[in-house]
Write a protein that binds this DNA or RNA. Structure first.
Lengths: 215, 215
DNA sequence: TCAAAAGTGTTGATCCTACACCCATGA
DNA sequence: TCATGGGTGTAGGATCAACACTTTTGA
């Protein structure tokens, strides 16, 4: 590689995360309003350029922490975006990631100095985003749907004890379709990821549901 | 992004291809001997740094063409490699790709000025490579095994007319295991990717096999 | 006629889907 | 007692793995 070739100059790498949550029965994604050019005033996904001394996962975690104070999220890679024009200032490649976070955890995260505003958007009410972030989000939604039955996804979205109807509602919301109750339970139970606690959820006004936990 | 931050300087992107072929009943990968530092004299996969004005696929195709004169290969992305130390000169992220090429096509490709030597290696006789290319190759082998039943893979490895035992041998070689003949045929035929030509292969000294083509 | 490779079907296990009725509770 | 949501089992179809004998050819 000839490092004097100007075609190699000024490249950089973005790590961009679609952070999803469930709130009020809707799938939402965290967007941040940019305070600087380019795309000043636009909403974008959480992310930024990674440093020379970081691998991509470290950089992604740092960016997420800086902008949201969230930590220890399970990140799944969901695409590489390399259109030379995707960032106006300089040539940037983006690596997309997908993750979910329990809405309760986000209540206490204050907005950091780097962000003017951060907001959860329903995924079908997302505006036109800066950069190519609509495309990155689209790939992440596919990844989210694929990973919805993973322990790492469900464990984040559920409290320590939960009912099967709760789990089913989460999956249905994310997949955007109804699931058969009996098949759903069979499927989940025979994976042996969860087991009954022996407790019941009396909070509903109807028949109490069995409480389960991850085991 | 603060472009004056030195942590953002001098990043680059490698596109790295594991180009596989079948030859003399073995799966082989194309390696190139480096003529320059770093890793002068080491064998590495085909690849290089992409230009500012290329997307990653364009850059990968260009690198492959420059180094092998091969064109129109079906490239499948097989990983992102972002260890900050993976390249000694400067910080380079690598995007790995997997592809296959018919051995016949490679006979006429002469070595280009950029390469001292290029050679097919059996995949279980690959030496220690420069950079992190052993790791990249490992991921590509997984991708190759996953994609072996894809039309785009098989079509490249087979002549225009071929027998089912030929296809089966290819799959067995790549997967490294024997397959049941009856199940294999059923599986392939019910995908309706191939159909009989009505011709027979008389080249063997035994019962002639039906010739098939992609349809 | 023999050796070698090509060709061919069936059976059982597993998995997935579709579907209907009873149960426990609070109002 | 009723309305609501929780809980449960089975039957049919599709898919996959295992397995053995017959056919065609050249030597």
């Amino acid at each position: 590689m000839d490092t004097t070739n100007p075609l190699y100059k000024n490249q950089g790498i973005h790590a961009v995360a679609s952070i999803f949550t469930l709130h009020e029965g809707e799938v939402k994604v965290l967007l941040i309003k940019r305070t600087n050019e380019p795309f000043k005033g636009s909403w974008i996904l959480v992310g930024g350029a990674i440093y020379n001394n970081e691998d991509i996962l470290t950089g992604m975690n740092r960016e997420i922490y800086e902008k949201t104070k969230l930590q220890n999220l399970k990140l799944v890679q969901s695409g590489v975006f390399s259109d030379p024009q995707r960032a106006p200032q300089m040539r940037m490649i983006a690596i997309g990631f997908t993750t979910v976070v329990n809405y309760e955890k986000t209540k206490f995260s204050s907005i950091t100095p780097k962000t003017e505003d951060a907001k959860w958007f329903k995924i079908n009410e997302v505006p036109v985003l800066g950069y190519d972030h609509n495309k990155i989000l689209e790939e992440s939604i596919k990844t989210l749907k694929c990973d919805i039955f993973e322990k790492s996804t469900l464990i984040e979205l559920l409290p320590s004890e939960f009912t099967l109807p709760q789990v089913q509602k989460i999956c249905e919301t994310i997949l955007g379709q109804k699931l058969d109750r009996r098949n759903f339970r069979k499927q989940l139970l025979q994976k042996k990821l969860i087991c009954q606690t022996g407790n019941y959820d009396y909070s509903s006004q109807k028949r109490p549901a069995n409480l389960y936990k991850f085991c």
